[in-house]
Structure formats: C-alpha cells, structure tokens
Design a protein around this nucleic acid. Structure first.
Lengths: 216, 216
DNA sequence: CCGCATCCTCATGGATACTG
DNA sequence: CAGTATCCATGAGGATGCGG
C-alpha cells in the first residue's frame, strides 16, 4: 500500500540539476535520438534506420517520453509525421558536444566493425573543431559514404558549422575513419593523403585540420 | 551459435564519439558517481550514503566498470581504500556542468521531497554561475545543512570555483532550495532575504547573484 | 511499404540479507 | 565497513502482427 508514490518511471529523486537532467535524458537511446534530430526533423523510419538497430517499441516509448518532456515534438510534415526538437531540446547540443569532445579518444582508436552514419559527423566535426577559426572564411564539402557534409569555418564565431547538403560542390572524398581521425586529431591531413584515403584538393582542409600532431 | 559477438556488456556499436562516451559513462548512476568524486576522493561508504540509496551491488559493479575504463582508480588512503577520479575522469566536469546548466529549469521548479546533499552545490554553483566575474575578487562562505561551501569568484577566470571547507569563516546560512534557486536564477537575493531564507551579510552575495530577474 | 503495438526471452536494476 | 549473494521487478532487444 505504499507503492503509490512511484510517479515517474525511475527518477533519482535528487534535488540536483544534473540528476534531474539525467532523469529526463539519461535513459538509454535518448541522447542518440537527440543527436539524430539535431541536424533537422526526421521521420520515424529514418530515425529507426539511422540509429542502427533500436527496437521499435523502445523507439516509440522514447519518442513519447521525450515529447512529454518537451524536448521534441511531433509535427505534420508534407510526407506525414516528423519528429523535431523543441528550442529547449536543441539546447542539448552544448552538453552533447562537450561529451563528444570528452569521448574523442574513444574514436581515435579506430572504427571496428561498428555501425556508422555520415549524419553523425554533422555534430562531431564542429564539436571536435571547437575553437578553430578561419580568416578568410572557408567552406569545404566532405563526401562520406555518398553523403555530402558542408563544413564552414569563419573568423567571427569560435566554432565551425556543418550541414548535410544535397547539392554537389567542390568536395573531398574520404572514408569515415579518416574524417573522424582527422577531426579527433589522431592523424594529420598529410598522413591521410599519404595512405590514399583523401581524394581531392586538400588545401582548404589543411587550414582547418592543421592542429596538434598525433600523440603516437 | 551467433551470440559470440557480444563483446562488451551493452555497447551501441556505433563509430561516434558521443555514442562511445555513452558506452562508458551512459549507464545508470555512472555520472552521479563522478559527480560525487569531483570535489575529491571518497570512500565506498561515503559514496553510498551521499548518493542516497544506490544498491550496494550496483555501486560495486559501477566502480569496477569505471575503474576498468580508466575514469577512476582505487587508491590506498590513510583510512583504507578511496576512489579517486583520474585525469581523464575529472575532465568529465565540462560536459557535466553543461548538462547541469541545461537542466537548471528542472530544479527551478523547487525541491519536492527529493534527497539533497550539499556536496552537489560544489558542482552546481560554479556551473550555473558560468560567465560571472568579480573585480575585486570575492569569497563567500555558504552554510547549507551544516556543510560550508566556499565560493570564490575572481576577475580573471570566467567561472567561479567552490570547495567544501571544514574551517569556519564569514558565512551566510541558507536552506538548499534557496541556494539552488539563487544559482538557477529563479529568485533574487532580495527575495531570499524577504522570505527570511538567507541569514547573514548578503552584500557579497549580491555581487555574485545579481543577474537576470526571474522569468515569472 | 511505413508506423507503430504486442509478445516473449533474457539481461539489468533494485532491495535486502549476509559475510569476511 | 566494504563489499557478496540472492531474489524479484523491470527494462532491453528481437520477432512478428497489423492497420493504413
């Protein structure tokens, strides 16, 4: 007769901003769902496939939960329902970029047989290039597994921006491993070219990724 | 015959810095354990009690897991084994502060019958005061539930620092709700005094917490 | 097809008792 | 005090069903 108090599903019950944040986004898959939506709204099926193997009941349950927490909302797009971050939800970008930066050493060890989606670079590259500036501003297209990532760096903002972009431009082509290793600072542009993993005019890339040499 | 591939306990299996970070610290209680250790090393029993109700088997398992991930290490202190963050583990402060800042609206709604430990303010106050400076520098003691938090703000660094400190000084006494609400910007120093929830000379506090008025 | 809902199995979390 | 051991409740993951 005392189990009435179980209001939310599994709260830490702590008066602490971090703990309450984790009450809301700490459950498995939640932050990865937000990661998928940061570049823009997606449909259910797109979420499911780009998350790579989440169970359908979990995805549904998480979407409902995040919706009731005002982190995302269901919208009616042209082709049906899309899920989009709210203003507050999109403000998760900062903590997520910080966590990604902290986790950079974990990707520098290389891709194993892990799943990968180019969309993730849209969050990862600006996060890992934090503090980089370019004057004059430059814009590089990076083609990874058929997707074109548009990377822009200017002199004003202390951070780079990147977008998925359907139209072609002057692009460099590279496999995921190379791009991630470059962003994480694990290899240099020279090394990427030497191994033949970077095709195109790398001059602009030099200006972006010329940073501290690899730790070795 | 195909279940051989289950290497780690439950990895997302994604080549993404955020996902791999979550593989390591994303499990329940992990970030809260790090939060406890950020102010300094703790013993097992201290962790257990200040986390407020974690099961002993879970605490043990998480400590082992975080140890093997090189986030914390067991040290032999004077009074036995203590758990201390490694260098890399302590670098989780940034993402955690960012997440706490994001979660500030969730504490502004007030403490319910949630558990509270003054130690948490050591992380929360500097995080929420990010960007605040003081010239000349000031140092305020905040007494909350018998603990003394020493809050320092100077002109150089863009962030405040705070420590648990056993020796007395000029202190202001306040209940947790008031301190958290002040830091989160939900109330002003004036309002705290008016309701009688802030005792002592609040002049220094004024210089720290005079920020944007409550949203209301 | 897409967008879920249901079912089933098993791993994980949580509370409590117990032990060196 | 610092954990193990145990038992039960819950959540994750995969397969499948089903209406639109």
């Amino acid at each position: 007769m005392d189990e009435v108090k179980r209001v939310a599903s599994r709260s830490y019950g702590q008066f602490c901003a971090l703990a309450r944040a984790l009450d809301v986004v700490g459950d498995r898959w939640n932050l990865l769902i937000v990661r998928e939506l940061l570049p823009g709204p997606l449909r259910y099926g797109e979420l499911k496939s780009s998350l790579g193997g989440i169970a359908t009941n979990l995805l549904t349950e998480r979407l409902r939960s995040l919706e009731s927490s005002e982190i995302l909302e269901r919208r009616l797009g042209e082709s049906g329902v899309v899920y989009a971050l709210t203003r507050w939800g999109s403000e998760l970008r900062e903590p997520m970029e910080a966590l990604g930066r902290w986790g950079a050493p974990l990707v520098a060890s290389g891709r194993g047989d892990d799943y990968f989606h180019p969309r993730w670079l849209v969050l990862a590259i600006p996060a890992l290039l934090q503090g980089t500036t370019a004057d004059p501003p430059l814009s590089v297209g990076l083609e990874v597994e058929g997707y074109l990532i548009n990377l822009r760096v200017d002199q004003t903002g202390p951070h780079a921006t990147a977008d998925l972009d359907p139209r072609p431009s002057t692009v460099l082509s590279a496999p995921p491993d190379t791009v991630v290793a470059l962003a994480a600072g694990a290899i240099t542009v020279d090394q990427a070219i030497d191994v033949g993993h970077l095709e195109g005019d790398a001059e602009d890339l030099w200006r972006v990724f010329r940073r501290s040499p690899p730790k070795t």
